[in-house]
């Protein structure tokens, strides 16, 4: 397996994530699509680490940091979703128009 295969897998996963983040109406669906994009970045980092710098582990460590930030992001995101649901009684992004005045 070459680096190109992994890069193309990462690109496909990222673009599926972009498609989901642009089109899902449900905000939990948008959060899940963002997780897909994080994972695509992690695949690319691990692949570059494995094929271009096999003697170091800096790419994998960066991927670990990304996993940590993703965990923090999803926790805060879901808490925000719960708070918004309590106010708007909806989980659809087009109903969140309180700031329009």
């Amino acid at each position: 397996m070459t680096l190109t295969h992994h890069l193309l897998l990462g690109a496909a996963l990222f673009l599926i994530g972009v498609f989901g983040a642009l089109t899902r109406r449900n905000i939990i669906g948008i959060l899940m699509s963002i997780e897909l994009m994080f994972n695509a970045a992690n695949i690319n980092l691990a692949a570059f680490n494995h094929f271009l710098h096999p003697e170091g582990v800096l790419g994998m460590t960066t991927a670990l940091f990304i996993i940590t930030v993703a965990a923090a992001e999803v926790v805060v995101g879901l808490a925000l979703v719960l708070a918004i649901y309590r106010n708007c009684e909806s989980v659809y992004a087009e109903d969140f128009n309180l700031l329009k005045g």
Binding site: M1, H6, L9, E35, N39, N42, I43, A46, A47, N49, H50, M60, A63, L64, I67, T68, A70, A71
Partner: peptide, 19 residues
């Protein structure tokens, strides 16, 4: 599984545990 295939064992374990 992709991580395990790349030889990133710790990343594989943390992906399973955290994600």
């Amino acid at each position: 599984g992709i991580f395990a295939n790349l030889g990133a064992d710790f990343l594989f374990a943390s992906q399973l545990l955290i994600y």
